[in-house]
Design a protein around this nucleic acid. Structure first.
Lengths: 195, 195
DNA sequence: CACAGCGTTGCACGCAGTGCACGTTGCTAC
DNA sequence: GTAGCAACGTGCACTGCGTGCAACGCTGTG
């Protein structure tokens, strides 16, 4: 029977994956994304280059692997909000799981700086956040009043909320993390959503 | 004197650029983006592979070159709107230059289908649209009331409007272009922006 | 001990992208 | 008209990403 083996394997696999991503991000931050070859990452992690591709689809994934999980976390958090809550209130609460997860402000800044400093990574980041819509919109749709375009409305609300989060995040980085992220988020939401 | 040469060269250069992009897109649409090598594109266009890189930064640019110009067109259109106009009204009007420019609905669908069907292109598209914010936000900011976070507010409005356009565009594709794009856009805007 | 499954690894290959150097073309100046 | 100049096209060599394939070692099992 392998009823218990599979979870074990997956568990170790996830650990290794995290380790690999961590060493990769450190190298990227230290000497730049483009100036770091996968051979160097592999050597630093003590595995072969070929093995990296067993854990990550490509170089970009090595840097962005954390973002996909974030989307799932937000979606899971959103799913637990009361069904009769206002979507914007639910989304704001769901986004706050990010503050619980992330490590120190320094580490966040390091990662985001790396991320914003390279066009490929920015593009990958934008795409990942666009995929968050796919997770969030279905959870928002049932909360909206009857309409023949409810799917579009739900998607738009998800996209707009993510855009607010993104704008707040950029401003937060610009201010070197000196202010509260969700103060900025609230400002952003108020700018577009008159209640 | 080369007061007239430079425009001439640039003009021919732009023409060649368009030709190259066009043949590339046709090939991409016909046999898929990943399954089309730059050697094939070069051969189809009658130039060397090396020359492609004289006109485009990379393969992705061959497919997305049109999008950057669109951002500049929208920005130019936005700049001409009256200064005391509501930002959302101005943005809606500015976006409408897209309808004037684009070719047939079939061609748009072909391009967008290609674009949505590949992850790399989706990412590049998302990033390009994110860069639109850099062009639009500065034009929106002076239209906003005094505030100590006006830059963030302007950026958010630009991002939200683009998100509405994007959501409307996706829905428009999903409906195979059977409805008016700006009806969908208005629906999207109403979903987030209670006036 | 033999065996089977699984992950790791090396190897070879195709393709994207870059630096460099050479040939061609077309305009400028004399 | 001709010499020269500048931009462009092109070939070549090279680095690095990403993939298919086959072999190797490790671990648990009968």
């Amino acid at each position: 029977m392998n009823r218990k083996q599979t979870p074990l394997r997956e568990q170790t696999r996830n650990v290794v994956r995290s380790l690999l991503a961590q060493t990769a991000v450190e190298l990227f931050a230290a000497q730049g994304y483009d100036d770091t070859t996968l051979d160097e990452v592999a050597a630093a992690a003590g595995v072969s280059r070929r093995t990296l591709f067993n854990y990550f689809r490509n170089k970009e994934d090595l840097a962005l692997s954390g973002l996909s999980e974030q989307g799932e976390l937000i979606a899971a958090s959103l799913a637990e909000r009361p069904a009769d809550e206002d979507p914007w209130t639910s989304l704001r609460a769901a986004f706050q799981v990010l503050e619980e997860i992330e490590t120190t402000a320094e580490r966040r800044l390091e990662l985001i700086t790396l991320l914003f400093g390279n066009e490929t990574l920015r593009a990958g980041h934008a795409e990942k956040q666009a995929r968050w819509q796919d997770l969030l919109a279905p959870l928002i749709e049932p909360r909206l009043p009857e309409s023949d375009r409810r799917a579009l409305e739900a998607r738009t609300i998800a996209a707009a909320a993510i855009a607010c989060l993104q704008a707040a995040n950029e401003e937060w980085v610009r201010l070197s993390g000196q202010v509260d992220l969700f103060d900025l988020y609230d400002t952003a939401v108020r700018a577009i959503h008159r209640t």
